[in-house]
Amino acid sequence: MKSRPGPASRRARASARARFGASVKSAAPGFTLLEIAIVIFIMGLMLTLVLPYMGGFREAALRSQARRLAGRATYMFDEATGHKLVLRLIFDLDNNRYLAAQLDPYAVKPVFAADNSLGGRPVTMPAAIRIRDVTIEGIGTVNRGTVATTFYPEGYVDATVVHLDDASGDVMTLEFSPLTGQVAIIAGDVMPSGMSR
């Protein structure tokens, strides 16, 4: 048979419960000054490490669009040469985009028709990046409207320089080599010596 605890024992237990409850209640609310200082220090350290790379993201986007345009131009040079076609890369500066067109040799009056193949779809630049100007030998520099670079079946392209810029003022220059069709991507605002604005 179990014996019941006496009144002194019950009081001791109640006192212990009261002390434990009081200590839990006093420690629960809020943060200490030291904890807040540590969190602020860690956030400041992370911002110090991340902020220098934020500009790199914009530059990476500009470089990515320059490579995309260069890839399109190289593809069109290969297509024109390989399939004996006359192709145009049309720059629509007012709408900040470029697209491909192909000369239809079977039309009564040969005209350039939009190329709706996978490689010819129009490409619109992101909002932060724009086609600033296009310089084509024999035409000059254009910064409004439309202008086209022609790719010929004999294996050459109009000498062309394209400047892309972003909201922070960074510029990428693309230079189309007329004999090889290769596109050089140069950081900065560069105009080859043989071409005039």
Rank of each mutant, 00 (worst) to 15 (best):
M1S: 14
S3P: 02
S3Q: 15
P5M: 11
R11D: 01
A12Y: 08
A14F: 08
F20H: 10
S23G: 00
S23N: 06
S26W: 02
A27L: 13
A27T: 10
A28Q: 13
T32S: 15
L34K: 00
I38F: 11
F41W: 05
M43P: 03
G44H: 07
L45I: 00
L51I: 14
P52T: 01
M54L: 15
G55K: 15
G56C: 13
F57K: 01
E59T: 13
A60P: 03
A61D: 15
A61N: 15
A61G: 14
Q65T: 08
A66W: 04
A66S: 15
R67D: 09
R67T: 12
R68G: 07
R68Q: 09
L69R: 04
A70V: 03
R72H: 12
T74W: 08
Y75A: 09
Y75Q: 12
E79N: 03
A80L: 04
T81W: 12
T81H: 11
G82W: 02
H83C: 03
L89V: 06
L89W: 05
F91C: 07
D92Q: 02
L93F: 10
D94R: 07
N96Y: 05
N96A: 06
N96T: 02
R97H: 06
A100G: 10
A101I: 03
L103N: 07
P105H: 12
P105S: 13
P105F: 12
V108L: 13
A113Q: 14
A113M: 11
N116Q: 11
S117A: 12
G120I: 08
P122N: 05
V123S: 11
T124M: 07
T124H: 07
T124D: 06
P126W: 02
A127T: 14
I129P: 06
R130H: 01
R132P: 00
I136F: 12
I139T: 13
V142M: 11
N143E: 08
R144L: 10
R144E: 13
T146R: 15
A148G: 04
A148W: 01
T149P: 06
T150P: 00
E154L: 13
Y156G: 04
V157M: 10
A159L: 06
T160H: 12
V162D: 01
D165Y: 05
D166P: 06
D166H: 08
V171D: 00
V171Y: 02
M172A: 10
E175F: 04
E175L: 09
E175S: 11
Q182S: 08
A184Y: 01
A184N: 09
I186P: 02
A187N: 07
G188N: 02
D189L: 12
D189V: 09
P192T: 04
M195P: 02
